[in-house]
Amino acid sequence: METARQTLRAGRKPLGYSPDALPEYAPVVQDAVDFEPDEEQPTPELAALQRRITALEDVWAIENLMSRHEYLHAAGLNEEELDTCFALSQADLSFEPEDWGVWEGAEAIRLCYVDGAPPVGLGMMTEHDTSTALVVVADAGRTAKGVWMWPGHETFASPDGDSHVFWSWGRYGVDFVKENGRWKFWHFYIYTTFRTPFGTSWVDSALGPRMFDLAEGETPPGMTPPTLGVTDNAPYHPSRAPRLLPDPPRRYPDVLRDGLLHPAAGVVTAPEDSRSSGCPCHVREAARKGLASRRACRRRGRADPSVMPHGRPAPSAAVSLSKSPCP
């Protein structure tokens, strides 16, 4: 079969060629075969290929959604982001920005992320560049999980006219749900790696007083308090060993219960992998039932024995599908 390059070298233009209407690398339309779609049911091989293509398109759409978050947030368009990127119809929609706490439900998140956001003005700049994406779409294609690391920088102008400049690095752990064919944020968690003034090392900042004079779980003045306390946030400290936070997702099924979607806990479909899939909604459940013990463990420098980062239950706490802790 003649290739597009051979066709053009021979001085012939492929069928459908138009230099004004087609991009530089437009596909060549072959006129040798008239293709008509088969009205019959696809073969198992074709159905499997269609599922693989859909999964790839889903991953691409999710990565685009995360990029849209970064662009809108950098421009201070938090309200537009909330209205277009979050699954506002989900009753258990949640948002946890670093060490402030968890806001649950669309209206609570609006009070935090829109009404409580720093005012956008002269000299302000916040950019967080997502990298190291790892996205897993559920077998049924209705939910997905993703984690990212991000380097960033921030500039805030104070009333006295001075600019406060920071290096800000962190990580995302996000659950997604598909609504009307579009992927949306479902459970959105932000974890701190470090935040330090420009010109100061993150080691010195970790050993010094907390930035912005806010204790863990304390919100800026005027912001509506969170629904739940801080679930898990482990910024860099020279006395702390690295942690797998958030836990990278693995293949998992979807579960439909009482008309709502819930990722399964402790259930996997890959026979070679018996580990839990991980789900931030488990973190929320732990926050409700054992926040005091979690904080006690953190003060003693120990990991919570029942809940692992990004909602992954410890092996002893793995549960079956019928006992999913998701609300």
Rank of each mutant, 00 (worst) to 15 (best):
S324E: 04
S316C: 14
V147M: 03
D83A: 14
G181E: 11
L22E: 10
D254S: 06
E40V: 09
L56Y: 06
G121E: 08
Y71C: 11
C281D: 09
E154Y: 00
F35Q: 07
G76K: 07
E63M: 15
P253R: 07
R182E: 15
P159N: 03
H164R: 00
R12S: 06
G181S: 09
H282E: 10
G217Q: 11
R288I: 03
P327C: 03
E70F: 01
F194R: 03
N233M: 11
G170F: 05
P118W: 03
P221Q: 15
T43S: 14
D92L: 01
F212N: 12
D232C: 15
T3Y: 10
A61K: 01
R284E: 05
A26Y: 09
F194L: 07
D232L: 13
V28A: 14
R12Q: 12
D99R: 00
W186T: 08
H310A: 09
V33D: 09
V136K: 00
M124P: 00
P197V: 01
F198M: 14
A264Y: 03
R275Q: 10
C112V: 09
T219M: 15
H310C: 09
Q6P: 10
V319P: 02
L228E: 04
W186P: 06
Y236K: 07
K323N: 12
T84Q: 01
G101T: 03
R142V: 05
P37T: 08
V102T: 07
W186M: 10
V114H: 00
P44W: 04
P221C: 14
Q41F: 07
V307P: 02
L77F: 08
V267S: 07
P235M: 13
I109P: 01
G123K: 09
P280L: 02
W167H: 08
A296L: 10
E216R: 14
L245I: 15
P44C: 01
E36N: 07
S276N: 12
L256N: 13
R171P: 00
L15F: 15
D213M: 11
R288A: 06
K184N: 08
M211R: 10
T193N: 12
M124R: 06
M1Q: 13
F95D: 03
Q50M: 12
E104L: 00
H237F: 12
G161N: 07
A106G: 04
S201P: 05
G290D: 10
E24W: 11
G290W: 01
A74N: 06
R284Q: 07
D115A: 12
V203F: 12
F166A: 02
P23Q: 14
G290Q: 11
Y113Q: 02
E81N: 05
V319I: 03
A206D: 06
L56I: 10
G141A: 00
L49C: 04
P309W: 04
I62D: 09
A287C: 10
R210C: 11
G146E: 00
T219K: 11
P27M: 10
T84K: 01
T130Q: 08
Y252W: 14
G161Y: 02
E79C: 04
R302A: 14
G76I: 04
A215H: 09
A265H: 14
H128V: 05
S201V: 04
G181H: 12
Y191V: 02
E39G: 13
V102I: 10
A74Y: 04
V255H: 13
L256D: 11
A140D: 13
L244T: 15
